[in-house]
Design a binder for these strands. Sequence first.
DNA 1: TTGCCGCGTCAAGGAGCCGTCAGGCGCGGT
DNA 2: ACCGCGCCTGACGGCTCCTTGACGCGGCAA
Lengths: 231, 231
Amino acid sequence: MPDKESSKVLVVDDDPQIARALRINLSARGYEVVTAHDGTAALKAVAETRPDVVVLDLGLPDLDGVEVIEGLRGWTQVPIIVLSARDDSTDKVQALDAGADDYVTKPFGMDELLARLRAAVRRSGLSVADADAQVETASFTIDLAAKKVRRDGAEVHLTKTEWRLMELLVRNRGRLVTQKQLLHEVWGPTYDTESHYLRVYVAQLRRKLEPEPSRPRHLLTEPGMGYRFEP
Amino acid sequence: MPDKESSKVLVVDDDPQIARALRINLSARGYEVVTAHDGTAALKAVAETRPDVVVLDLGLPDLDGVEVIEGLRGWTQVPIIVLSARDDSTDKVQALDAGADDYVTKPFGMDELLARLRAAVRRSGLSVADADAQVETASFTIDLAAKKVRRDGAEVHLTKTEWRLMELLVRNRGRLVTQKQLLHEVWGPTYDTESHYLRVYVAQLRRKLEPEPSRPRHLLTEPGMGYRFEP
DNA sequence: TTGCCGCGTCAAGGAGCCGTCAGGCGCGGT
DNA sequence: ACCGCGCCTGACGGCTCCTTGACGCGGCAA
């Protein structure tokens, strides 16, 4: 397991008592913690802060828990661990089938939650295989773990948006990534058709990384569909 | 979601009562079930039968549960769901940190177990998901996930419309696809009779992919009905 | 045989998409 | 308050790809 810089956790709970307890415990374990107190804020927070895992309490004031899960699963595979006071079997089935990864019944042991959190993060981590977090092309090198790009030995600085876009393309290297998918994962689920953003940022990446930006060899356009990164 | 043939489950339990109950329930849900009664047999069974998910009861006669998990995690990422009569927090933490995906305490509801099973399979499914979306013919190969077509090793570029049409035919390989269906799925539900579009694009696909475009071997015409893709 | 219909082929036009540049705006740091 | 960086937005030119029409061929029925 590579040294993982602290994972970011989104805690969704309307009970400030529990939210506070979780924040303290998780922070103490080295997690970066973001909180939301209702479903709407949760959906927004995921789009904006991109947590590595979501801890979701059921019984929120505004939305049903299943609705929140469905809202997230429409565009992201971030692991979701559900907390609930109800030990009812049908609740569990509904939440899990909606796309939750795990379901923990209150009262729960903090040890157990932490273990389940580790399991969820571990799983999602290895599915994208940080095995080769280092990707090389003829003209530049990308280190996914360190979030660094080097070209001719010198380091190239990428902005936050540039990096998100680049990372998504690199993690799907060789595969075509659709415009919609890129927009959703980089700008958020409400962006469907703003393909102009993509053109601008792909152009910037090409200018920074391609030997001949006007004749790209690695960041390829598939007209009408999306983009593709070829190592 | 592509047609999923039944998943294979390995049930590891030394209590024949429970093993039998699980076998019956899982079989009834369309799972293919394999059983093992101790840890040694479990390790062997995973290597031999390659299940899609493992349901592992703790408290086996020969090996400690954590040892079984570690033995598996040394070489495979198959999802592991642990069953246990012990609700002890440290047991859960140990199992999860050893690499288990989930931990269910007995007595458990069969509904819940099935839901957790579905969640585990779904997760592992989407990471390698379309990995095997590779279709081969005598003269070219199609990668549905990457949206790539190769012919004699060289990559052939398909446009958006060409690809939509090709994908639809490939996903229905061996079957006849009617003109109306093709028009609806590629051009939209308002297109019913514009079969001219089909003729133009099928011709383009044949020119790009068939060894003898005038004598097609894979993209076949069914006069008056539609088209068929034969691998 | 002759006419008709469906299919395959080719090429031209035009719509829509893409790349590029420049300017404005917000935000954080000095 | 000022400055600079990064993000968003608009305009415009170029190019790809979709559409569309014309034509030849072959099968089938009258």
